[in-house]
């Protein structure tokens, strides 16, 4: 009986090593890459001709438009 109990305890101790397998869960998928299909870049089209800077300028101007202090004055 003692032998069996110590066997079970030893087994449990070994099994608890599994806890060492816990990894940080921060999602670390590569940005800008779809899991399955590659997604188009939003600036890779006729309007922006794959010019990221131009696209960002357009969006920044649009975002600034939300500031009514700038728009009014």
């Amino acid at each position: 009986m003692m032998k069996a109990v110590s066997l079970v305890l030893a087994g449990a101790a070994v099994l608890s090593l599994a806890g060492c397998g816990e990894k940080p869960q921060t999602v670390s998928a590569k940005p800008g890459v779809s899991a399955a299909k590659a997604d188009d870049k939003p600036y890779n089209n006729d309007q922006f001709k794959n010019d990221r800077a131009a696209w960002e300028r357009t969006l920044r101007a649009r975002a600034d438009n939300q500031n009514e202090y700038k728009r009014v004055n």
């Binding site: 087994g11 070994v14 099994l15 599994a18 806890g19 397998g21 816990e22 869960q25």
Partner: peptide
Amino acid sequence: ALKNGTVSVYGGWALVA
């Protein structure tokens, strides 16, 4: 945290063990 972590890790290894 529990599902992706503790339960899956211990549970998965319990099956392997």
